[in-house]
Design a protein around this nucleic acid. Structure first.
Lengths: 103, 103
DNA sequence: TTAAAGTACTTTGAAAAACAAAGTAAAATA
DNA sequence: TATTTTACTTTGTTTTTCAAAGTACTTTAA
């Protein structure tokens, strides 16, 4: 390992993306509105952060119509789950490890 | 509480700032070079992220000369320690809580 | 002694990211 | 039929991030 933060994933560096992932880790899916309400974010916000996670293939997007209305459902991909778990491990290590510095 | 991420501190949303704080929580101080090496960041990076944390009064900066060379030492303030602990609590809650969604 | 290289930062300005307001299109309501 | 609401997406400005360049020395070496 090069440095103490090298395993911390840039993609999860933002609280909204962290929130999205943590919701999708516990619940096997969540839709746009749910994420929006749960995270207290604006529409544009959810749109761009989910897009960012989708671009990395960390979440999958399923579009359908529910009650004749458009519905966008987000699901954490295997890659995303793995990456997120690794991120959490890295976080935990960063915070727990008493780094030997002698300063 | 308004939403599940409302206690997650924006100031710690970045891995370099997270790293700086975690180093300063465990070690009572660290200087510029140490942070730079420990985090594998560039000079400008450390400068701007420490400045951001200083602006929030989360860290204190002490400038002196050691061996005739300038030395900048960073220390977590009480406010910073408190804020960071609260941030970690919020993180933990976010990740542990099985949010009741019924979806 | 003076030129070149190194140290410890700070400043700068371009690039990327974040944000909310505005836009879209269809559905529900009145 | 008009108006409001829902469920998003797009847009363009603001903010943040970043590393390259700059500053002000100190050290080494010729």
């Amino acid at each position: 390992m090069k440095n103490i933060i090298s395993n911390i994933n840039k993609a999860f560096d933002h609280r909204i993306r962290l929130g999205i992932m943590s919701v999708l880790m516990v619940n096997d899916h969540a839709d746009f509105k749910t994420l929006k309400e749960l995270l207290g974010a604006t529409d544009g916000n959810i749109a761009s952060h989910t897009k960012a996670l989708e671009k990395q293939n960390y979440i999958k997007v399923e579009k359908s119509f529910i009650d004749r209305k458009p519905n966008t459902r987000y699901i954490a991909s295997d890659k995303g789950r793995k990456a997120f778990r690794e991120h959490l491990d890295a976080l935990e290590k960063l915070l727990k490890t008493k780094n030997e510095l002698n300063i």
